[in-house]
Design a protein around this nucleic acid. Structure first.
Lengths: 157, 157
DNA sequence: ATTATTGCAAAGCTTTTGCAATAGG
DNA sequence: CCTATTGCAAAAGCTTTGCAATAAT
């Protein structure tokens, strides 16, 4: 499962060791790439196949993965960080657009990238070398909008 | 100092009380509107003029302010949330573009808003009602780029 | 063989909460 | 007067750290 070769290479570049724990975290992240897993969630998934792993190792591994550019750390204001694996094949993909529903908390991914023009302006005007960007839109998702209408616009908390 | 009338009105709308503590937090946020203060920092500022205030009150006040749309909660991945007061006069301003330097951690505000076209697409295509958005660009700021060049591209950690 | 990495438990943070005292409308 | 709000201290997360044991090159 997953291209462990890529992981080995990435680790090797900086003389980090390829351990089983790192392999397993990498595999879970690859397998669940759509899910924005938190350290805790990753831990729960892994305990099934690797019961002796420690939560601290997950944290350390994620930190390392972020450092070597293997994952992207996301914050959806829900009390923990979440991690998204970066595609091994596409070095250009650094966009993260997320729609966060204020009602149900659902997170929707956006594929479009219309940020390029903004990036150009920023790079020029602020002389800021953009490495990555994250865009969070908060609002009400289509599902919750429908519910609202069915309830005759009744307010929820 | 600050337009406390606006605060009173905002609180009144939802039958919240205008306490001294809330007034003071509002004033600090207004005064330091460029600084993205954390609860702890706000607490430190306030202790000078209001020594008996409790940190928990700051937290509760900020939560309340966010709920009534008086502040915007920001996360710069530095271990705490930070708050930005929303301009009383401009209900249209909901854009928050920040440039975060990966080297020195400096946060630069961007005024431009080229997000409107992206927003339109998202609203249509995902039927998602956008209430707010936050854009974080991470990269290297002009100052650090200069330093890098002076050091002949030596890598820093 | 050496040194990085791990697991565990403890500690460190920021943030939240329970409760009696206080103060605002 | 009545109830929301506060301060304090304790608790509750999430995350990090120290250290001896273990595993990778």
């Amino acid at each position: 499962m997953g291209c462990v070769e890529f992981l080995k290479e990435k680790l090797g570049e900086r003389n980090f060791k390829l351990t089983n724990q790192r392999k397993v975290v990498f595999e879970i992240l690859t397998e669940k790439k759509e899910e924005h897993l938190s350290p805790e969630e990753i831990y729960e998934h892994i305990k099934d196949i690797y019961p002796e792993i420690g939560l601290a190792t997950i944290y350390r591994t994620l930190q390392l993965f972020e450092e070597i550019g293997l994952v992207y750390k996301l914050n959806f204001d829900d009390g923990c960080y979440r991690y998204e694996i970066l595609s091994p094949n596409n070095k250009e993909v650094h966009q993260h657009h997320h729609l966060i529903c204020k009602k149900c908390g659902k997170i929707i991914e956006v594929k479009e990238d219309l940020m390029n023009s903004l990036e150009e302006i920023i790079e020029k005007q602020y002389n800021f070398e953009i490495k990555n960007h994250i865009v969070k839109f908060t609002g009400i998702c289509s599902q919750c909008r429908n519910k609202e209408n069915n309830n005759g616009n009744r307010k929820e908390t």
